[in-house]
Design a protein around this nucleic acid. Sequence first.
RNA 1: GCCGACGUAGCUCAAUUGGCAGAGCACCCGCCUUGUAAGCGGGAGGUUACGAGUUCAAUUCUCGUCGUCGGCUCCA
Length: 602
Amino acid sequence: MAQQTERYEDTQLYKIRHSAAHVMAQAVMEMFPDGKVTIGPPVENGFYYDFDLPRNLTPEDLELIEKRMRGIVQGKHEFKKRVVSADEARQIFADQPYKLELIDGLEKGGLDEYGNPLTEKPEISIYQQDTFTDLCRGPHVQTTKEIKQDAFKLMSIAGAYWRGDEKNKMLQRVYGTAWESKDQLKEYLNQLEEAKKRDHRKLGKELEIFMFDDEVGPGLPLWLPNGAIMIEELEKLAKEMEEKAGYQRVKTPHLTKEDLFLRSGHLPYYAESMYPPMELEGVKYYVKPMNCPMHHKIFGSKGRSYRDLPVRLAEYGTCYRYEKSGELIGLQRVRSMQMNDAHIYCSEELFEQEFLAVVDLYVNYFKLFGIEKYVMRLSLHSKQGLGKKYVDNETLWLKTEDMVRRAMTNGGVPFVEAQDEAAFYGPKIDVQIWSVIGREFSLATNQVDFAVPVKFDLKFTNKEGLEEVPLCIHRAPLGTHERMIGFLIEHYAGNFPVWLSPEQVRVISITDVQNEYAEKIAKELRENGIRAHADISSQRMNSKIRQAQLMKVPYMIVVGDNEMQAEQVSLRVRDGSQENNIPLGEFVTRVKDKIIRRASEL
RNA sequence: GCCGACGUAGCUCAAUUGGCAGAGCACCCGCCUUGUAAGCGGGAGGUUACGAGUUCAAUUCUCGUCGUCGGCUCCA
C-alpha cells in the first residue's frame, strides 16, 4: 500500500512533531527572551529543540513550558511560510548567531542544518506561528490546532553539542514526544513502561545473571552463576558452528608488549580506547583491546602454502577497552568483553566465498534466536580520516570496499552503506539489530583487513611459487558475550529457551514428606544433563511456584503424594499451562530433546 | 570526556519547613504440612555512597570525589 511506503518526512505525524518543536521554541523564548535558538527537528517518536540559554533548565521549567505550549496550541495560530533572501534572513535573525551560521551554510549551498554537505543550493524559507519565527524548510501543519493539546509531552532535558561536534558549545536539548491523538500518546507511554521492565539491566539483576560493583569498577561486569551458564551455552553453540565451518581454536594472553601494538598500528590509531601501559623492567605492556595481533603471530609462525588457506583462527578472547565513562551502559557498552572472535586468512580469490560464509553464519544465528529485523551496514572510510582514523592508503581502501560491495551483491545480501564508519584497517559489515524494547545493538561484525597483515610480514606461497600477502577477515558473528547476552535478555524478556535457561527445571515438593523424592528427581535430571534443582524449603507450594515463575524457570515439576506413589510428575510450564501424571522418563526425554534441538518453544 | 538529574537495609521504596532513620520482600528462628503466582509469629539488619564545610543539630543546606541514570560525543 502506498501508505506503508510513505516517507516519514511526508506524514502528518512528522508535521505535527516538527510544528510542536516550533511551539516549544516559542514557549522557551517567551521564558528567556535573550535565549538563542538552534535547530529542532522531528525524530523517531517525537522531536527535540536545542537551545543556548542563560541558565540551565530544570524539570519544573519543563512543566511550565509544557503548560504554555498547551496555551499556544489552542490559539489556532497559522504556520505561515515565506521564502526570503539570505540578506533578509540575516536581518530577521540578526540577534540569533546560530541561525546566522545556518544561513551562511544555506547561502553557500554547502551545508544543511546538521553541517552536512548538500548537493544543490536550497531556498531559504522562514515559518511563523503566533509571535515566533524560525528559519525552517518545513513542512508544517496548517495551524497549531492540529497539534492536539493532550497528545504531546515533554520528556527530558539533555546536553547536546552544537552540530554534534564535541569541540563546539554544549547546548540544552529538550526532548518531547507528540502523536496524532491522546490514545496514541498513552500507548507510547505504556510502551516505555513495558520497555523498562524488559531492560536487561533490571532483568539481569532480578534473574541474577550479572552485576556491577563500585569497587570493581564501572564497565567491568561480574558474571553470576546464572550468567556464567549462559556464557558457556553460547560458547558451546559457537564452537559447534565453527568446528563445522572449519575453524581452529587458539588461546592467547591478555597482555602483550608495546612492540606488538606498535607493529599492528593499534597504538597510533587506537590508543585512545586502550588502557594505559604498565611498565616493568623498562618494558611497557598493554592489555589487549583486540585479539588480532596475536592471531597474526600464530599465522606467521610457520610457512604457509596456498593449499593451507583459508586458515581460520577462533578465540573467545577477553579484551579490555577504555570506553569513556559517559559511554558505559549496562552490558551494552563495557570495558571488559569476551569476543566471539576469529581471523580468517585467505587469498583474494578466496575472499568472496569466505566473506559470504561469515554472513551465512550470522543468518543462521539470527534464525536460531528468532531475530527477524536486522540491517547489514557496509561501513566505509572517509577521505578526511585518512592518516588519522584510517590507514593512509586510499587506493587500497577503494579496492577493498569494492570487493566487499561486490561480494555482498553477488551473494544477494541486502545492505546499506555508511561513510566514515570503518575500522582503522579496513571496511566492514556491521549488523545492527534491535531488541524488542527498541534499543539498538551493533553485534555481529565482519571486517576486511588489507593493512595489518603486511605489517606482520604475513605471507603464503602461491601456485606460481611466489610469496603473497593474505587478506584477513576479522569477524565476530555473536559480537561479545556482554552485548549478546544483554540483547538476549531484552529479546526474550528473560524467558529464555530451555537450552539457554540457567535453571531448566525446578522440582517443587508440596510437603516435606516428598522432599526426598524431589531431590531424587532433581538428581536424575542432572544425571541426564538437565539443569535442575529441588526446592525443599519450608515454604508453601504456592510460594515456591511463585519464586520459580519470577525466576522464569521454564519447567516446574510439582510432586505430592500422588506423584510419589506413581513415580510420576506434574508439570507446570512457565507459560502457566499444566500437565499431570507424566512418567518421569517421558519428561526427561522431552526436555532433552528441546535442549539438543535448541528449540525455541517450550 | 561533556551537559543535567539522582545515590537511604541484600532488593523495592518512605521520612512534614534541618530536630532520635521506617515499611514490604529477602535473610535467621519458631509454628503450620500445605495441590499450581506470596500461610502465620518473632528476630536480626543502616557511619543515609565517600570526604570536607555551614549549624546547637545535616538523610535534608554548600563544595569536592566516586558511582548510576537520561542525552551528546565515541563504539563490539
